[in-house]
């Protein structure tokens, strides 16, 4: 079981709720994936500061834990305000903290991220920061009070997969006891399996499922891949070798045949 701020979670797939063809398909995808946590964007779905309406009711009705996010926020102040709104709206201290620093790549502004994380942790929030794979930033986030880290493996929505496995591996080695969730950049089930094989604790997906031809089948495919990657990691993976190693013993055969 995965422990996130004292909550035991058995599914290692967290699902975003944006950009599905319809709420009905979103609900089916969540069920098919077995996800126990979904994220929802407050900034985007609250026009004119009016909170919620039917869409949020629908999210709550999914019967899964809601991890509100601050997607679309470009400053620490904006992110903190959005997080407080989310706490009132969903009655949870959990917040996926996103502070975007670059409009085009959606790269996090790691300086504002650390500032916002400190403010929110001091205010009793349990913060899930969306960050890069930079180890020093990760250290600062932990110092600020975060107990979970969510590094990207590629830019948001890029579907590029783990573009820097060396950095991801370093992060895992550096923080063996911190739950690490890959957030952003996954495009295919094999990408998810690959990061799980590196020993990551979970992955968070949105676009790869929401914009798939069949989001429900894709949600299931990712869940299966994540499970396979996790089991592979736990079972102990072989290291690559330069030479062949026969899988069948050859005792009894002539050496010079």
């Amino acid at each position: 079981m995965l422990d996130l701020y004292g909550t035991a979670v058995s599914s290692r797939l967290l699902l975003g709720t944006a950009r599905y063809p319809s709420p009905a398909i979103l609900a089916d995808a969540v069920r098919a994936s077995g996800a126990e946590i979904v994220t929802v964007s407050l900034r985007r779905e609250t026009a004119g500061g009016k909170a919620g309406g039917a869409f949020f009711a629908l999210i709550r009705d999914l019967g899964v834990r809601v991890l509100p996010n601050t997607a679309g926020c470009h400053s620490a102040k904006e992110a903190v305000t959005t997080a407080r709104m989310a706490r009132d709206l969903f009655g949870t201290n959990w917040i996926k903290l996103e502070v975007i620093g670059h409009h085009d790549t959606l790269q996090p502004d790691v300086f504002a991220l650390v500032d916002a994380a400190r403010t929110l942790c001091d205010d009793g929030f349990e913060v899930f920061p969306y960050t890069t794979d930079d180890l020093v930033v990760a250290e600062r986030l932990l110092e600020a009070g975060c107990k979970v880290l969510m590094p990207w493996c590629a830019p948001i929505g890029s579907a590029a997969g783990p573009i820097n496995p060396v950095a991801l591996r370093a992060m895992r080695t550096h923080f063996p006891d911190v739950p690490l969730i890959v957030d952003a950049g996954l495009g295919r089930p094999s990408h998810a399996a690959a990061v799980m094989e590196l020993g990551y604790d979970a992955v968070l997906l949105n676009t790869a499922v929401a914009l798939a031809g069949d989001p429900v089948v894709m949600a299931k495919a990712f869940a299966t891949a994540i499970d396979a990657g996790r089991k592979g990691f736990q079972a102990g993976l072989l290291s690559p070798r330069d030479m062949a190693e026969p899988s069948t013993p050859i005792i009894g055969r002539a050496v010079f045949s």
Binding site: E45, T46, G48, K50, G52, G53, F55
Partner: peptide
């Protein structure tokens, strides 16, 4: 396309 029933002016 925004999941909201707020009909206020364009943002």
């Amino acid at each position: 396309m925004i999941e909201s029933d707020d009909a206020g002016p364009i943002s």
